[in-house]
């Protein structure tokens, strides 16, 4: 249940940042900083039990939301990146605690992971198509 809450929060924060930065065209820094600031104020107040964790997750996802449109063209890309952020955050909760930049590193790894998955899927799809074509040519020879 906690993991699901963390991943949901990450998706909401990441998508909000991406939307503010790209659709509302406010820029990556203002988008991320405002989501971070609002999370830092709202989550501890409205969710006393998990608030401190959720605000950190939201900040982490907002750093991922600073990804450029070139690397994440659609909101779906941002949803996937944010989900990976939520998952990685849960897994690495006690690693390098207290190091400034740790959350951004999680965000960067998540961006690379999603981009890698997408590119691998595209390459596999192209390989399957070319295999199909070469087999088709073989049939007609």
């Amino acid at each position: 249940m906690n993991t699901l809450t963390i991943i949901s929060t990450a998706i909401a924060a990441g998508v909000a940042t991406y939307f503010i930065a790209n659709n509302l065209k406010k820029g990556a820094v203002l988008a991320s900083a405002s989501v971070t600031l609002v999370s830092g104020i709202i989550f501890p107040y409205f969710f006393p039990a998990m608030g401190s964790t959720l605000m950190v997750v939201a900040a982490c996802a907002s750093y991922g939301g600073m990804v450029s449109r070139k690397n994440a063209p659609t909101l779906l890309d941002m949803v996937m990146i944010s989900a990976i952020i939520g998952l990685l955050f849960t897994i690495t909760a006690t690693s390098y605690a207290g190091i400034g930049g740790r959350l951004g590193t999680i965000a960067a790894i998540s961006c690379f992971a999603w981009l890698g998955l997408k590119n691998s899927a595209k390459a596999a799809s192209r390989a399957r198509k070319s295999d199909f074509l070469s087999k088709s040519v073989g049939i007609w020879q």
């Binding site: 990556a28 750093y63 991922g64 939301g65 600073m66 990804v67 450029s68 070139k70 690397n71 994440a72 990146i81 390098y96 190091i99 400034g100 930049g101 740790r102 959350l103 951004g104 590193t105 999680i106 965000a107 960067a108 790894i109 998540s110 961006c111 690379f112």
Partner: peptide, 12 residues
Amino acid sequence: AGIGGKGGTTAA
């Protein structure tokens, strides 16, 4: 450039 979290990695 353009990877979200790059700044954080720099900071880390």
